[in-house]
Structure formats: structure tokens, C-alpha cells
Amino acid sequence: MTALFHNLDATHPPPPEVTKSAFAEELGLSKARVSQLVEQGLPLTADGKRVKRLDALAWYRENIAPHRRKALSDKPNADPRRELDRVKLEAARIELERARGNLVDRAEAEKAVFERARLERDAHLAWVSRVTPRLAVELGVDAAALFSALDREMRAHLVDLAETPLDALTDDD
């Protein structure tokens, strides 16, 4: 809660009085919100221009419900600089994961999966042409009729696979 004064040590404690802007920054609030809090009773100096820091912190803890304080600090864009810092941090994390090889480009991944599926489909269809003559001799049947039947069944099987949701193909029972 004392982010504004984080570089100060015990020999240099935070000042007893701060500007409304400094107090807003310390709590992660907007200046407008601090003005609203002043209207609700947030303690100020006698001239009304500065915030009595310790008194104001105590008042804030007592008068603003804990869940409300959290909601204020978690509200998107409550403090544009804080939101910008959060976005920059997230971008840096993503870039680090990409550099480590833990992230891949979605378009590249989709292209790779599509290419793999196309190669597998072509391999299945080529299998029919490759095994038909051998099976025809082994079974003593007409090769053209066997090819037609196997090709028809393989294509139906591939259509069925294409229409089946992925989760139905896994065996996670």
C-alpha cells in the first residue's frame, strides 16, 4: 500500500501530509475518487489542500468496506498507468514463453495440423490402391470390384472421421 514511498527507509519515513494526487497513486485510485472520498470525510489538512496520510489511511480502512477496496483496485482502467504496466508485463511474459519455445503461432499450428490431416487422408486413399491387387489375388476376386468397394468404404470412413468431434475420438473413460 505504500508503493509511492517504497524507496524510503526507516530514516526517511513517508511524509505525514501528501497531495491528493500522491495519496491517489499510493492507493491505486483516481484523483476523482479521492475527491469523492474527501466529500465522504477523508481527513485533510486545515487548508484542505493536502491529505493527512496516516489519518486518511486509517479512515479509508474503517470507512471503505474491504470487498469495496478490492473492487476498486481490481477495476480495469482504474489507474491507466497500472493497467498499462499490467499489459506490458503480460506481453513480456508471453514473449518470454515464446522465446523458451513454450508458445507457438496459432496460424502456423493450424496450418501444420491441416497439412498433417491432408497427408494422412492421402495416405489412406493410396493404401487402397496399394493393397487392392494383392488382396484380389489372395481372395480370388475381381481387382476392379475390390478396389471400388475398398475405395468407397475408405472414403466413407474418412468422412465419418472428419465429422466426429475430437473429444469423441479420445478414450479418457
Rank of each mutant, 00 (worst) to 15 (best):
H6G: 06
E138P: 04
D79S: 10
K20G: 05
D55P: 05
V141T: 00
K52W: 12
A32D: 03
D9L: 06
E163S: 03
V34Y: 04
D142L: 01
V159P: 02
A92R: 06
A10V: 10
D74G: 08
K70C: 05
R98L: 12
K88F: 14
R69Y: 15
L72Q: 03
R53P: 00
V18F: 05
A46Q: 08
G48C: 05
R121E: 14
V51R: 04
P165R: 10
S30N: 05
S73M: 09
Q36T: 06
T45Y: 00
A144L: 11
E153H: 01
V159K: 10
H124L: 03
R68G: 00
T132W: 01
D160T: 15
K31D: 12
G28L: 08
N63P: 03
D79R: 08
R152E: 14
A112Y: 06
H12A: 10
A117I: 13
A92S: 09
V113A: 12
K111H: 15
M1F: 14
S148K: 03
R98I: 06
S148A: 10
L89T: 12
R68W: 07
M154V: 12
A144R: 07
W59H: 08
R82C: 12
R53D: 14
A112P: 03
T2D: 11
V137W: 11
E97P: 03
A91V: 11
A91N: 07
P80T: 14
F147E: 14
P43M: 07
K52P: 03
V137Y: 10
A92Q: 07
F23M: 06
K75M: 13
R116H: 13
D9W: 06
D151W: 13
L42M: 08
R155D: 00
R33S: 01
G48L: 09
D173I: 02
L161Q: 04
P15D: 10
R33C: 02
E108V: 15
E95R: 07
S30W: 02
L27F: 11
A78F: 00
A136P: 00
V141G: 05
V128R: 05
R118G: 07
N7T: 03
W59Q: 07
R61Y: 08
R106C: 08
V141A: 00
R118Q: 14
R61W: 07
R152M: 10
A58R: 14
V141Y: 02
P133S: 04
A58S: 13
L37P: 02
L27D: 10
D55T: 13
L119V: 14
S35W: 11
V87H: 08
E108A: 11
V34P: 01
V141D: 04
E108N: 11
D105S: 03
R86N: 06
V131I: 00
K31V: 15
A117Y: 14
D85F: 13
L27W: 06
L166E: 10
D171V: 09
D85Q: 13
L161N: 05
R152P: 09
E153T: 00
P16L: 14
K31I: 15
L54W: 12
V128Q: 00
E110I: 04
M1V: 15
A168N: 13
